[in-house]
Design a protein around this nucleic acid. Structure first.
Lengths: 247, 247
DNA sequence: CGTAGGTTTGACCGCCTTCAAACTTGGTGG
DNA sequence: CCACCAAGTTTGAAGGCGGTCAAACCTACG
């Protein structure tokens, strides 16, 4: 595993508080690997062999049933995924595949479980991460059940804008087809919803979206801190506020 | 707090593994309370004051946004709820209200957090519980995105049957109106879907449902261990199998 | 260039919601 | 004990949101 990757791992919330010996022993067992685009890393139903940490690139979490398939989420670096399956030593509920070329650090799940048992600070961090993930899916369920597709799209665009420090112009991080699936609609319907928004609050050019009337977009989305994912490392927030509010 | 409640708390996965001193100190700070039906225990957006443990009765978890409202889940005794908000010391994402008269043990959230930090076994149990909750919402999201309303209803009925040891006859634990909301549809639509199922695999009399053609129902629901909630304390499973499989 | 894959557009259909009214159920008081 | 009322459920009719299918268009890449 590349030595330059270790510090960025160490900075992750999950690994930040653990003791150095535990961290080093875990890293000794871990290895880093690079994967081509569109490669299936994990198939739902398999058992958790490794905790994955995405260092570079992006990974899509999918779920399938009965011939249908949907995007459950997209992982951006640097962050871990499928921690819950590791902790419970249970089969994955989702599949994971790379979108672009990705480098991933893989830590054997069994060793993670040992470390959790021996290092209380690590366990606390894992607990916090799981609580956050839990709340993320509560939010997603609320989003799906309470908003219609136009509202979900509007909320997503506002979220992306907020993510970039309330930027006017955003660029979609994934293909529209995948975004549509993530938002629980068809590509056709996403296209049409986008057209509705273009009528009075955006301009769209391929993957580039410019917000022309934020108040109108906000009126449609009605963003709500209890439903919309808080921004992880919001540049603006980090500089303008003393304390990062919990979410 | 009633002394007869303590043992049933102690048997909970969350409290089972913790040290007796920690457990006793938590219990000293906790108090039990009885609530009338339809009382709002928790309002979404408030901060977590207490970890709640439902001892008797039932509690509905709801989420609201912009004048709309939906049922996110129903808690049955004996189990805890809103652990994630306690752990993160963050606002509740859901509201909670009693359905029937309920008795609930309330443990101050601050003391829970102290106990988590001082008792690694408790932290491990909390982690496990959170991982399970996380996976529960992943399942729910899959259910909402991959199945249509008829399939969700069929799967729900099969789930209830499985819950009672694959019983032929089940009785709905909540009003149909609430079930409809939980399943992401209107009461009218639930009624119609029920009628469709009555045509070839069930008989329905009020809250009583009898499965007349299980294979047909199964064909509609296509139950999947990666999507459908595993049964908690399945009587049949506990007696017929050596080891309970993880989920 | 040419091709494959993604996106958009149009037409159509169906699932599901909405609205309204009838019906059933459970609880209460005469 | 029965009448009555409120609340839940069912049924019907109508409409809209979103899905499906098909074709045209665009874009990236070999």
């Amino acid at each position: 595993m590349n030595a330059s990757e270790k510090p960025s791992l160490r900075r992750l919330p999950l690994f930040r508080e653990m003791t150095t010996p535990t961290f080093d022993s875990l890293m000794k067992l871990a290895y880093s690997q690079s994967f081509p685009p569109r490669l299936e890393l994990i198939r739902q139903g398999e058992y958790a062999d490794f905790l994955h940490v995405l260092i570079k690139g992006s990974v899509e979490l999918r779920a399938a049933w009965n011939g249908r398939s949907t995007v459950m989420g997209v992982v951006q670096p640097v962050s871990t995924f499928i921690l819950a399956a590791c902790v419970r030593n249970a089969p994955y509920l989702m599949s994971a595949r790379t979108l672009e070329r990705a480098t991933i650090v893989m830590v054997p799940a069994a060793d993670v479980r040992v470390a959790l048992r021996s290092d209380p600070d690590f366990a606390m961090a894992a607990m916090d991460e799981l609580a956050q993930g839990y709340r993320g899916f509560v939010r997603q369920t609320k989003n799906m059940k309470l908003r219609n597709s136009l509202e979900r799209l509007a909320a997503y665009i506002l979220y992306r804008s907020r993510h970039d420090g309330d930027a006017e112009r955003i660029v979609l991080p994934v293909e529209k087809r995948h975004l549509a699936s993530y938002l629980g609609m068809t590509p056709e319907n996403l296209s049409r919803s986008m057209k509705v928004l273009q009528a009075d609050c955006l301009t769209v050019e391929g993957m580039d979206i410019t917000i022309t009337d934020r108040s109108r977009l906000t009126a449609i989305a009605s963003p709500d801190p209890l439903m919309d994912e808080p921004v992880a490392g919001a540049v603006k927030a980090a500089f303008s506020r003393q304390a990062e509010s919990k979410n």
